[in-house]
């Protein structure tokens, strides 16, 4: 794809990632002024699920880029969106964490320590955020050069663990009977399964190439 196309798509991607936050702020403003139920009867719950789901969706999209590129070589340019989408995932994760610290824990350290030590869904969520943190901090080209591609790649495999921890956090957080995390779990499963499948396909086609050379 040409440079101009990429720039246009990047502008679009920024807008797509920021629009939900703008919507949320707009509803927040409405709920404070003219429409008390602009965020639903339980605004804390609405904001929590909104930011949490946003994080997981962006994280899964980010992780899908590499297998899609490998399956469809024509889409190689997608790699240029990976860092940006990953950083947006972290941005949503920070909003989600802030929601918890402010609206659930009420900025109380005691409440937070209590939660982290006793509630596995909070522990899983915090673990996911802590795994994303070093990835966000080392997202610059400077870091890649400084660390060396191999080390950097190894570190950034943490994104998979973060996504898995995030989905577990989601399942542990919803009550019995609620199946809302199912969709994102299936999509993440496909993305995770795609990597070894793509690698296998590559190996097979490499063998195929050798055979053609021999004959």
């Amino acid at each position: 794809m040409r440079q101009r196309g990429i720039v246009g798509l990047k502008v679009f991607a920024h807008a797509a990632c920021l629009a939900p936050v703008a919507w949320l702020l707009w509803r927040l403003y409405l709920s404070a002024t003219t429409d008390p139920i602009a965020l639903g009867p339980d605004p804390t719950h609405t904001v929590t699920f909104f930011t949490g789901r946003g994080t997981l969706r962006l994280l899964v999209i980010t992780l899908a880029i590499t297998p899609v590129r490998k399956l469809i070589p024509k889409l190689g340019w997608l790699a240029r969106f990976r860092r940006m989408l990953g950083l947006y995932a972290f941005f949503y994760a920070c909003l989600h964490l802030m929601t918890y610290v402010w609206l659930y824990a009420g900025f109380s350290w005691a409440a937070m320590v209590d939660d982290i030590s006793q509630r596995r869904f909070i522990t899983a969520g915090l673990a996911a955020w802590l795994m994303l943190l070093p990835l966000a901090l080392t997202s610059t080209s400077w870091s890649i050069r400084k660390m060396g591609g191999k080390n950097w790649n190894r570190l950034h495999k943490l994104a998979y663990a973060a996504a898995i921890a995030g989905v577990i956090h989601y399942w542990w957080g919803v009550k019995t009977g609620v199946r809302t995390p199912l969709t994102i779990t299936i999509v993440l499963g496909i993305v995770l399964a795609a990597r070894p499948l793509v690698a296998m396909k590559k190996r097979r086609s490499a063998i195929g190439v050798q055979r053609t050379v021999k004959t």
């Binding site: 008390p36 139920i37 339980d42 659930y104 409440a111």
Partner: peptide
Amino acid sequence: RDHPRWSQKTERVIGAPIWKQL
């Protein structure tokens, strides 16, 4: 007496503004 998955020490007031729910 906490629920194993969340605290019962506080509650969210339904219908209250978001900054006053807790």
